[in-house]
Design a protein around this nucleic acid. Structure first.
Length: 153
DNA sequence: GCCAACGTTGGC
DNA sequence: GCCAACGTTGGC
């Protein structure tokens, strides 16, 4: 089993939105970055654990945990001309973009803020606090996961 | 809203 | 295949 961090802008889709979905499950569409796509298509497996991270908002940080319930499959929004994620260059026979389904496991009682995370010792290798932190989906090492979980409010 | 850091595109 | 220009991300 592997661990991941998925970013979302809560104004668009928050952990509370995930909580209100049927079965508290939703497909994680709209990822349009090749490195993140590779994770979605090739590496993220059923049962993997995912931190939900709220970005581009007043209170940035990790807000809860979800579990992967469906492995990578083509993101249908790439073929929808009305979607803001529409990609006319994507070939239906060789889809460019993938997504997975995740199910909410736990919403934290509070926010594990980016500030708190950055203040944690021995977390400097965590991708979120390094230069590549713009990735919308990033791996989390097992020891990092446990350190972060232990700090969750 | 600013701006630094990336990622992508496209001309050559 | 290089690299400048452009677009996007995301913390502050």
């Amino acid at each position: 089993m592997q661990y991941w961090l998925f970013k979302t802008e809560p104004d668009a889709f928050s952990i509370d939105d995930l909580a209100t979905m049927p079965k508290q499950t939703e497909h994680w569409d709209g990822i349009r970055n090749y490195q993140a796509r590779n994770y979605l298509r090739d590496q993220i497996k059923r049962g993997d654990q995912v931190f939900i991270y709220h970005s581009s908002c007043k209170n940035v940080g990790i807000v809860g945990v979800a579990e992967v319930v469906k492995e990578g499959y083509p993101d249908h929004s790439q073929f929808d001309p009305d979607s803001k994620y529409h990609d006319p260059k994507s070939d239906p026979d060789a889809p460019r973009w993938y997504m997975v389904d995740i199910k909410l496991k736990q919403k934290f009682a509070g926010l594990l803020s980016l500030k708190d995370i950055k203040a944690m010792p021995d977390i400097q290798d965590f991708a979120l606090v390094k230069k590549a932190y713009r990735l919308s989906i990033m791996p989390v090492a097992q020891n990092e996961w446990h350190k972060l979980i232990s700090r969750a409010p």
